[in-house]
Design a protein around this nucleic acid. Structure first.
Length: 823
RNA sequence: GCGAGGGUGGCGGAAUUGGCAGACGCGCUAGACUUAGGAUCUAGUAGGGCAACCUGUGGGGGUUCGAGUCCCCCCUCUCGCACCA
């Protein structure tokens, strides 16, 4: 009479009922403790992939677990809906980006619902919707007011593949993070967010993030790239102009024998103008500019330079040293100018060798004399200053300080901290994004759109060809507008914002998603924020996570939020692999979540993905493993079905006196509650699931014996179903109903274990002789140390092993192990 | 080159503080039930002897009564950064 486990029917039934009954809807309730559980929202490509399933399964378990533990849980979802793929689809298939995006969202939503995720769907947001992007524009205006949004002409990264500029963070090893095209450098006037105003705070507050993986914090720290040193002015010979360098080694200043400039350094033109070196310098610069970023930054590459004919004067010793352009000097770091100390910098050493430039040792390692003629490489270690005039004999670390002080006294330099982090370039020459709400007026200049005129609506009637620049720039009625100040004809900004702007505050919008006076309300944000648990891929370690931290700090300064950091705890999930490599269409190894759900159900898919690997590690997809998870759920199903009547008909309490089989089962039940509770709390889902499997095995075993106790079975079954509820929400809900329960299992309290019952009555005493296991004896769990010792020494195997040796020592680990040392 | 994290059966993975290595699952083997089963249930499953025992957590050393776990050296894989002045 037991029915078959029909996953399709059950999952449809409960998905519909949960929706009808709104059981996951969330309200602010100051009387309850809150938790904000968030997964990174998806880009609506139209189809979920296994990475999404993993991400959202992890988040859903955490959300359900916390809900069952009495927390008021915010668990929202939405779509990061602006972006280039929509435009590419328009070009390839002639579909409007909006249509493409929204139909994708519709199918993503269906798939997300099929997974049985406990989202509050009333809070769903879409960044491409005017009621969302309006507030992005509003925030842009606030940033502008505070001087945090500004426009400047600069050398920027240009991706020829995406036909738009990119922020520094979005160039990986010289290539576009999205499409892999080699980025070029172009000089353009663009909008930036002044993230560098927040550098120190972004760096310092990393220490508040002890709930983040160490490596993410390190990646951010490295990206920010703080280094201490000094700025030093070098006078140009025969001119009143000077060039400033940044150095971390002011102690080696006396060893500077030449001077280097980035080829694109702004001083280069006036230095060489009209000289015999002009033509050569221009040629050199063009050659370097023609190289890809990848060629240029390759460490193995031979260094190239060009002498400019110019000399600068070393401020500490008055020496005149030659100025070269060098391809290994980057305009984007420091001042784009470097004092070269070949004896103590490997790169400068190589350059000096190639161009026959002098090498002078100014740091002497202890017990060794550096001879520049004999050096095979630069000495970058510690030592004492030499050949450094008044500083001779000063230890190097102290020298850094003293030389800097000297420079400051003389007014030719100062202590300085340099960062690698640059301002965030947010302009994009693309259509499908949030329009930057700015107008250009002949008389008034750059004029922000008035707040009451927001949003600047992204027009829909555009032609998207993929050629000839931004589609918006060609949309006449969009471009033509009037100046908000003088009412004269003016021109609209046609760049849109980087989509990372949209995702830098979406977690705040979830707190009050339908608010129409502000991006979010202070009350809602104060109640929910910060996010207690954020879950997503490591690929955003710097990008999205750094930008979101920046936004949060700005909003904190504006008094709009009360927390300085957005994400208290961060879990970075591992990738999903098949045959050892990431799933991709080109490799033909993609397993579609939809087909797995169809064949085995969402509960199986979720269970497998959580069971196969710890969340932070890579997960190797296994069809066999999926079948195993399906088998387990079937096993649970049959176990409960077979005992349904028995359990429902049992009202009696568990008797005080029980047989040993009953006592053993109760022990396993309570131990399992303890294990699963602890395992979920530390995100060890795979071991939590394995613990429930062990419980099921034990219950099958118990079920075979005669005279089974219905009350004990009831306790076991109900707890098993409760423990599995976060993992397999549909199946457990169906079983729960079958057990005669009226309210949803997902609104039920998480089970509690009895610490007394979770203790074993008997334990296996491991007996070692000289560290090797010689016997295992079952003893009472509360055995005394003295009895352990006695029992161990009485063992025949132990006696045989000791032989005629003398017992020298006995180590006892209470309740576990005895180690007898005999010689 | 620098930084981080790994290396445990045929496979995915367990082993909170140093205390039974291999939980759980996959696969495999055998048995039961069956018209049949690729369903289900039960048992076994690190390797070698097939018995007492011996050997085993990338390799080599060390600390300890005791090491997958701690220390030193080396090999190897993955990821991140990469001429950072």
């Amino acid at each position: 009479m037991a029915e078959r486990y029909n996953h399709k029917e059950i999952e449809n039934k409960w998905q519909k009922r949960w929706e009808d009954q709104d059981i996951y809807r969330t309200f602010e309730d100051p009387s309850k403790p809150e938790k904000y559980i968030l997964e990174m929202f998806p880009y609506p490509s139209g189809e979920l992939h296994m990475g999404h399933v993993r991400n959202y399964s992890i988040g859903d378990v955490v959300a359900r677990y916390n809900r069952m533990n009495g927390y008021n849980v915010l668990h929202p979802i939405g779509y990061d809906a602006f972006g280039l793929p929509a435009e590419n689809a328009a070009i390839a298939r002639g579909i409007h980006p909006k249509e493409w995006t929204y139909s994708n969202i519709d199918s993503m939503r269906v798939q997300l619902k099929q997974l049985g995720l406990s989202y509050d769907w009333d809070r769903e947001i879409t960044t491409a919707s005017p009621d969302y992007y309006k507030w992005g524009q509003w925030l842009f205006l606030k940033f502008y007011e505070r001087g945090l949004a500004y426009r400047k002409k600069a050398n920027v990264n240009w991706c020829p593949g995406c036909e738009t500029v990119l922020a520094n963070e979005q160039v990986e090893a010289g290539m576009c993070w999205r499409c892999g095209t080699v980025a070029e450098i172009r000089e353009l006037e663009q909008w930036f967010f002044k993230i560098t105003d927040y550098t120190e705070r972004l760096l310092d507050d990393l220490k508040l993030l002890d709930g983040w993986p160490e490596r993410v914090r390190i990646m951010q720290r490295n990206w920010i790239g703080r280094s201490e040193g000094a700025l030093v002015d070098f006078q140009i010979r025969g001119s009143d102009k000077k060039i400033t360098v940044f150095t971390t080694r002011p102690d080696t200043l006396f060893g500077a024998t030449f001077f280097l400039l980035a080829p694109e350094h702004p001083m280069v033109n006036e230095l060489i103008k009209g000289t015999e070196y002009e033509a050569g310098a221009v040629e050199f610069r063009q050659k370097v500019a023609g190289e890809t970023e990848i060629d240029r930054i390759s460490a193995e590459k031979e260094k190239n330079g060009f002498f400019t004919g110019v000399y600068v004067i070393n401020p500490v010793n008055g020496e005149e040293i030659p100025v070269y352009l060098a391809d290994y000097i980057m305009m984007g770091y420091g001042t784009g100018a470097v004092m070269a100390v070949p004896a103590h910098d490997q790169r400068d050493f190589e350059f000096a060798m190639k161009y026959g430039l002098p090498i002078r040792a100014v740091i002497q390692p202890s017990g060794e004399m550096l001879n520049p003629d004999m050096m095979a490489q630069a000495y970058e270690g510690e030592g004492v200053m030499v050949n450094s005039g008044p500083f001779d004999g000063t230890p190097q670390t102290e020298g850094v300080k003293r030389v800097t002080e000297y420079l400051e006294e003389k007014g030719v330099g100062e202590a300085a901290v340099n960062y690698r982090l640059r301002d965030w370039l947010i302009s994009r020459q693309r259509y499908w994004g949030n329009p930057i709400p700015v107008v250009y007026c002949e008389t008034c200049g750059i004029v922000p759109v008035k707040e009451e005129d927001l949003p600047v609506i992204l027009p829909e009637d555009v032609g998207i060809t993929g050629f000839g620049g931004s589609p918006l720039a060609k949309h006449e009625s969009f471009v033509k507008t009037v100046c908000p100040i003088c009412d004269e004809p003016a021109r609209r900004e046609t760049d849109t914002m980087d989509t990372f702007v949209d995702s830098s505050w979406y977690f705040l919008r979830y707190c009050s998603p339908r608010e129409d006076k502000l991006p979010f309300t202070k009350e809602a944000v104060d109640y929910w924020m910060p996010v207690d648990q954020y879950i997503g891929g490591i690929e955003h370690a710097v990008l999205h996570l750094l930008y979101s931290r920046f936004f949060t700090k700005v909003l904190y300064d504006m008094g709009m939020v009360s927390s300085v950091e957005p994400f208290k705890n961060l879990l970075t999930q591992g990738m999903v692999l098949k045959d050892g490599v990431t799933m991709s269409k080109s490799k033909g190894n993609v397993v579609s979540p939809v087909s797995i759900i169809d064949m085995y159900g969402a509960d199986t898919a979720r269970l497998f993905i959580l069971f196969a690997s710890p969340p932070e590690k890579e997960l190797e997809w296994s069809d066999r493993g999926v079948e195993g998870s399906y088998r387990f759920l079937n096993r649970v199903w049959r176990l409960v079905e077979d005992n349904k009547q028995l359990v429902a008909g049992t009202t009696a309490a568990i008797p005080g006196e029980l047989g040993s089989a009953e006592r053993d089962l109760r022990y396993i039940v309570h131990k399992t509650i303890k294990r699963v509770t602890g395992d979920i709390a530390r995100f060890s889902f795979n071991t939590a699931i394995s613990a429930t499997m062990e419980l099921v095995n034990a219950m099958y075993k118990y079920g075979e014996g005669a005279g089974r106790n219905p009350a004990v079975i009831k306790e076991a079954i109900e707890n098993l179903v409760l423990l599995l509820a976060p993992f397999a929400p549909h199946l457990t809900e169906e079983l729960w109903e079958g057990l005669g329960k009226e309210k949803s299992i997902h609104l039920h309290a998480w089970p509690k274990y009895d610490p007394e019952l979770a203790k074993a009555e008997e334990v296996t005493l491991v007996v070692q002789v000289n560290g090797k296991v010689r016997d295992k004896i079952t003893v009472a769990a509360d055995i005394s140390e003295e009895d352990m010792r006695r029992t161990a020494l009485a063992s025949e195997k132990v006696i045989a092993n000791i032989g005629d040796k003398h017992v020298r020592n006995i180590f006892v680990v209470p309740g576990k192990l005895v180690n007898i040392v005999a010689k």
